[in-house]
Simulated assay, not measured.
Amino acid sequence: MKAIANYVFLTFFGLIVTQCSQWEIQKPNLLQYLLVFSAPTTVGVIASDLGSGGRFKTFDPNSLTVSPTSVTIHSDAVGRFYEDKVIIINRLNRDSIQILDPRVNFLTVLDFSVGQGRNPQDAVLYNQKLYVALYNSDVIPIYNAQTGTLISEISLTKYRETFSSSGTPDRFLEIGSLVNVGSSLFVSLQRLDRNDVSGYFPPNSDSILVEIDMNLDRIVAEYKFPIRNPSSRIVKKVLFGEPHLLFSCVAFVGFLSRNDGGILAFHLPSRSFRNEILFSEGVAGGDIINFVIRDESLGYAITLDAAFNKSVQSFRPSTGERTGTVLTIPGNRGITLSGMHLTAEGKLIVGLTDFTLPGLNVYDTNQGNLLLNPSPISVELTPLDIFQLQNP
């Protein structure tokens, strides 16, 4: 870790020297990186060797340029950006929160454990309090974002399942994703049956969206999902002229797949789910694993069907109709799709998990979903998550 810190410091110091040395100014590659990766279009990419380790890198989709900086993280991680900091959620078998500071070349400024085996999934930073979603828990812990010290916990034990096909419900809630709207924290509870006789984790109980007041740190409301098993991150989006929260609810998924899920919209002013599904699995022909939405007229979804064929489909959220296919990967090919992001400029970034040639595909949605790179753009390892480096 000390060697990595020294390298980061020297790299950052070298960029400072660039401003002062005529000899360094003649090396445009450093200036290019300095300018490109301070741009508002830059995204963060989580990449992994799917085994021993992972990397955080930055990528500019307009210039198709990957930064030389590489930060060591866990092999199973996702990223968020709050208050000018990158928050890395190192999931199962690392179980920690790692905070990177972009101002010092993404140096790790804090790394703390959330408890062995608790499997963190998401985090929200609010007034220097860090709220963490734990997949293997029934509480929301709150940490001091400066020190990593545990401040308190919000109990969700009243939402434990009361039914299991085995007769013995488990105590975990599968707390999947968090998002804040002002001082309200919204928490998605999958509530899967880990003790089901099938050996899988089916959604035998209703999934719940919980609203927490972060000034008081207490539950203020709960809402039942019309479709069970919200598996995606929660997306804040203005649709139909009003603010919504968006979810992909997959219901029975994978080996239990029934094409019974879809993308839902939660209307924030009325605190209710819209009756219309923005895009259903019945129309998509498979489980909707991930999605991005530009507006009422255009969205994209990563789907997986019963034959393990993977695809990126376009759809129209206002009508729920499928409008096209951007990419299809047959089930017999060892490639999966992981991570997707749509920039404000219309660049659709898709991560390809491929042992031989992993990387990023970038499509220009303003030019009919034109693929801008002839082969996947390497980010050292296999991309897993892509997120905007801007405060929400």
Rank of each mutant, 00 (worst) to 15 (best):
300 Y>P: 01
300 Y>I: 01
301 A>I: 07
303 T>L: 07
305 D>C: 07
305 D>K: 07
307 A>P: 06
307 A>Q: 13
308 F>A: 12
309 N>A: 08
310 K>T: 09
310 K>G: 04
311 S>Y: 07
312 V>P: 02
312 V>M: 08
313 Q>G: 07
313 Q>R: 11
316 R>F: 06
317 P>L: 05
317 P>Q: 09
318 S>T: 06
319 T>L: 08
319 T>G: 08
319 T>Y: 03
319 T>E: 06
320 G>S: 10
321 E>W: 01
321 E>N: 08
322 R>N: 12
322 R>W: 00
323 T>L: 08
323 T>G: 00
324 G>Y: 11
325 T>F: 10
326 V>F: 07
327 L>S: 09
329 I>V: 14
329 I>Q: 00
330 P>D: 11
330 P>A: 13
331 G>W: 09
331 G>K: 05
332 N>K: 08
333 R>G: 03
336 T>H: 10
336 T>R: 12
337 L>V: 11
338 S>M: 09
339 G>C: 00
339 G>D: 02
342 L>T: 01
343 T>K: 08
343 T>F: 05
343 T>Q: 12
345 E>K: 12
345 E>S: 15
346 G>V: 03
346 G>A: 06
346 G>D: 05
347 K>D: 01
348 L>C: 04
348 L>E: 02
350 V>M: 06
351 G>M: 01
351 G>I: 01
353 T>F: 06
355 F>Q: 15
357 L>W: 13
357 L>Q: 15
358 P>R: 04
359 G>W: 00
359 G>T: 00
360 L>Q: 01
361 N>L: 12
362 V>F: 01
363 Y>F: 15
364 D>W: 04
364 D>L: 04
366 N>K: 11
368 G>R: 12
368 G>N: 14
369 N>Y: 15
369 N>D: 15
370 L>D: 09
371 L>S: 02
371 L>G: 02
373 N>C: 07
374 P>I: 10
375 S>R: 13
375 S>G: 13
376 P>M: 10
